[in-house]
């Protein structure tokens, strides 16, 4: 789970949990018609997002920007051929899953970790993972540590009630070392504990730690260890019961990934329109037979790339090297370059 799932615990969580339990009991009656019909009737897609810099945050003009937000726009292009026919609503961790169940959102692009419980028990479908995250360790450089297993006897800050708490305990049990956990509720307090030397290290999703590191007074005194303690695949989530909507989500994401694999970018996409490669002309819709067969605008992939760019461009612009956030691509590169992004063929 990302940080978004983790804040606001204790009494708030309990209240929300109570409401959610009732909500789940009532939810049987909630999904009557397919999501896609509702979207078409309404004319916009309702997307639940979170609030995390780089991933989803409004800019000074109040327009939503960020990595996940761009995929919401891509969906609007696939369905309506208009990147603005989408409404973003920020949603807190406690309410987002019930809100998806109740039909408040058509899709959650709020960095939900795909898990087996959420699939079977809560009844959600997940699209392709669009961001591979994992729990990391942010360590004071003066300790001279290069691996998590060298942190024997260390004091480690974790946010209370999170999967991070369980993951770090599992990790130390596995390596057979001892550590002292310091559970911290407040996210600002979290960084201060490291700066004041109250803890030797912090553990949290790596993307979140990387971001917080830049907020430290002396970022260069701290290092984010390359090791990952857990798997946190963040994927779009939709309510079960609308297979066509799920496929639209799938292939919208795949279109951005496939474009990067082909080397097609926002700038050069028009030069590919004359391509002799049948795979590319199917992909861009210059050969319309594929689009007609699947009942989508044959040019939907072209429109996405032309408007937003491919996966790599979206990544760089929002959270990558071209943004103040400055993440490394890591696993989030095409499989051809050693990453985990892999699109099934467009045929």
């Amino acid at each position: 789970m990302r940080i978004e799932n983790r804040r606001h615990h204790t009494w708030r969580t309990k209240i929300a949990a109570g409401v959610i339990t009732v909500a789940t009991l009532l939810s049987g009656a909630a999904h009557a018609g397919p999501t896609l019909d509702k979207i078409k009737e309404r004319g916009t897609i309702k997307v639940g997002v979170g609030t995390s810099p780089g991933f989803f945050a409004p800019d000074s003009n109040g327009k939503w920007q960020g990595f996940f937000v761009e995929f919401g726009r891509a969906l609007a292009i696939t369905v309506f051929n208009d990147p603005d026919k989408v409404e973003f609503t920020s949603s807190s961790p406690q309410q987002r899953l019930p809100a998806l169940q109740s039909g408040e959102f058509d899709i959650l692009l709020s960095g939900v970790t795909q898990t087996v419980t959420r699939a079977f028990k809560l009844g959600f479908h997940f699209g392709p993972t669009i961001f591979y995250d994992g729990q990391g360790l942010l360590v004071n450089k003066s300790l001279g540590v290069t691996k998590g297993s060298e942190l024997d006897g260390a004091t480690i800050g974790v946010q209370s009630g999170t999967t991070g708490e369980l993951n770090i305990a599992d990790f130390f049990r596995k390596t057979g070392h001892k550590f002292t956990p310091v559970t911290i509720e407040d996210s600002n307090e979290f960084l201060k504990a490291l700066e004041s030397g109250r803890v030797d290290a912090l553990t949290q999703d790596a993307s979140d730690l990387a971001l917080r590191r830049t907020l430290l007074a002396k970022p260069d005194d701290y290092v984010l260890l390359p090791e990952r303690l857990s798997k946190e695949p963040l994927a779009p989530a939709i309510a079960a019961g609308d297979d066509r909507w799920l496929e639209i989500v799938n292939w919208t994401v795949y279109a951005t990934i496939q474009a990067e694999e082909f080397g097609i970018t926002k700038e050069n996409v028009d030069t590919f329109l004359n391509s002799e490669d049948p795979a590319i002309s199917r992909f861009l819709g210059t050969d319309p037979s594929l689009g007609q067969a699947i009942g989508l605008d044959p040019k939907f992939a072209y429109n996405i790339v032309k408007t937003l760019g491919n996966y790599g461009e979206i990544f760089d612009r929002t959270i990558g090297k071209g943004s103040p956030v400055g993440f490394e691509r890591g696993y989030n590169q095409p499989w051809t370059q050693g990453g985990l992004l892999y699109s099934p063929p467009f045929r």
Partner: peptide, 23 residues
């Protein structure tokens, strides 16, 4: 704010979430 409405306080928090003016 906890149900995602951008009141004054939530707007203030989100203002500092903008990557250009982070933190």
């Amino acid at each position: 704010a906890v149900i995602g409405i951008f009141d004054l306080l939530n707007a203030a928090k989100n203002a500092a979430n903008d990557p250009i003016w982070l933190g």
